[in-house]
Design a protein around this nucleic acid. Structure first.
Lengths: 237, 237
DNA sequence: GTAGACATTTTTGTTGACAGGTTTGTGCCG
DNA sequence: CGGCACAAACCTGTCAACAAAAATGTCTAC
C-alpha cells in the first residue's frame, strides 16, 4: 500500500562517474571490508537487503565484483543469500549469540594460554599497569570509548602473541559477527567493573607464567559476559 | 576523461548453442564439494595447480562457476590463490597442523561438553557398548577401515548432539584440512589402542553426565593425537 | 654450449549482455 | 471495496567473449 516514492534514478542516467566512494577500481577484499564495517556499525541494519546493482554503482565496480564480495560475506556468516532473492544481513537471534559465545569462550581461553606460553612473562607487566591505572580510571569516569579502544588493543595483542593463524582467523570471524553487541554489553550495570577485575586477574596470571590459570580466567570472563548478555537480553537484542 | 566504452551493437545472433554432451549442470557447491573430496583423498596432491579451464571442461560447466568454487575453497583454507598465477592446493606444514590441532583440541572439548549437557545420559550407552565390543575387535584385528568409519560416525553424532551450528562449522573446516592425515595417524603403533581407551573413557563420563570430565578427556585425547603426530612427523608429512 | 631476448601459447582476470525468477504495479471481476 | 489474475519492472544467476598477465618455446649472439 505504501507508495514507493522516489526510486533512485527514474530516467536520467548518471552521466559522469558519480562514484561516491573509491574512485576507480576497488579490489574485492576492500569491498568486503567496507561492507563488513557497515554491518558492524549497523550502518546497514540487520535484515536489510543488499542489492548488487546498487552497491556496484556506488563503488564504481562491475557487479561481478560485488557478487564475489557478497560470497565472502556469506561464507563468513555475515549475510544470508537466498537463491534468486538476494542477500540480506543476518539478524542475530539470542540462540545464535549464545552459540557464538560458547565457541568464543574456548577460543579466547586457548588464546590466553598460548599467549602466556609463547611470550616471556615480563612482556605483560606494562599492560597490567595500564589496566590498573588508566583503564581503571576510564571505567570510574565512564569513558567507555577509551576503555573499549584499549581493551581491543589488548585483545589484538593477545591474538598476535598466540601466534596461531587458524585461531586468529576464527576469532576474527566471531568478532565480526558480534561486534555490534560489545558496546551494548559493556555499558550494562556493573559489567565494565567486573570485566576490569577479570582482565587484571588474567594479566596477573600471565605475568606469573601460569598458562592454565590464564586460560581458566579468560574462560570465566567470557562466561560472565555471556551471562550478562542473557540476563539483559531484552535491552540488547 | 575516461573514455566510456562504446556500447556494442547486438548484431550477433546466437543460434541456441546446444550442449555437446549430456554434460549436466553442476551447481557451485557441488563443484566445491567434489574438489574438496579430491583434496581430502589426495587424489589431487598438495602443491598441484588447479587450472580453471581444465576443471570447467571436465565438469562441463562454464569457467565462472569453477572460479566461484575455487573462491570458496580459498576461504575455507584448502587452496591458495596467487593473483594472475592461479590456485594451488595448500601444502600442510607441521606448524600449520599443530595450529589446527591446538584449535581442534578446545573445540572438540567444547563439543563433548555440550553433547553431554544437551542429551540424556542414556543416549550414549549403546555407543559405549559399541566401542567396548565391535570397535575393540576392529582394533585388535587391524580392521582400520571399519574403525575409522564408525569413529567418524561417533564424531558426527557428537557434533549433532552439541547443537551448535557455529561450532559444527568450525570443526568441519578443521576436518576438511586435516582429513588427509587421520588415516596415517591412526595406523601409528599404539595409536588406535590408546584412542580406543580414551574414547571409552570419554563415553563413560558422558554416560554419567559429567560434562567437565568429558571435556577434559576429549582434550587429552586430542593432545595425545597431536603428540603422536609430532613424534612421528617424519613418517606422516 | 649457454644465456638472454623475442614470439607464441596458455592461463587467469574482467566485463557487459542475456535469461530466468521474483517482486511490484495495475486492471478486472466478484 | 477487496481479492485475484495479469503485465511490467526489477533483480539475480549465468555465460561467453575480450584483455592482460604469465609461462613456454625458439632463436641468436657470444
Amino acid at each position: 500500500m505504501t507508495k514507493p516514492s522516489l526510486r533512485t534514478v527514474p530516467s536520467t542516467r548518471k552521466p559522469r562517474a558519480g562514484r561516491v566512494k573509491g574512485a576507480g577500481r576497488a579490489p574485492v577484499p576492500d569491498i568486503a571490508s567496507a561492507l563488513r564495517e557497515r554491518i558492524a556499525t549497523q550502518e546497514i541494519a540487520p535484515g536489510s537487503k543488499l542489492r548488487e546493482n546498487e552497491l556496484a554503482l556506488e563503488f564504481g565496480v562491475p557487479r561481478t565484483r560485488v557478487r564475489e564480495a557478497l560470497a565472502v560475506l556469506e561464507q563468513r556468516g555475515l549475510v544470508q543469500r537466498i537463491p534468486n532473492r538476494g542477500a540480506v544481513v543476518i539478524r542475530l537471534e539470542l540462540s545464535q549469540v549464545t552459540h557464538l559465545y560458547d565457541v568464543r569462550e574456548v577460543l579466547e581461553g586457548l588464546c590466553a594460554r598460548l599467549a602466556t606460553v609463547n611470550g616471556d612473562p615480563a612482556r605483560w607487566q606494562s599492560t597490567l599497569a595500564h589496566f590498573r591505572g588508566p583503564m581503571a580510571r576510564y571505567v570510574a569516569e565512564g569513558d567507555i570509548d577509551s576503555y573499549i579502544a584499549d581493551y581491543e588493543a589488548f585483545r589484538r595483542e593477545l591474538i598476535t602473541s598466540a601466534r596461531n593463524p587458524v585461531l586468529a582467523n576464527m576469532l576474527d570471524s566471531i568478532l565480526e559477527r558480534t561486534q555490534a553487541l560489545i558496546r551494548r554489553i559493556i555499558i550494562l550495570p556493573g559489567r565494565a567493573e567486573l570485566g576490569l577485575r577479570q582482565h587484571t586477574a588474567l594479566l596477573e596470571a600471565m605475568c606469573s607464567g601460569d598458562a592454565d590459570k590464564a586460560e581458566q580466567l579468560r574462560r570465566e570472563n567470557m562466561r560472565s559476559a555471556k551471562d550478562f548478555l542473557e540476563r539483559y537480553r531484552k535491552y540488547i537484542l
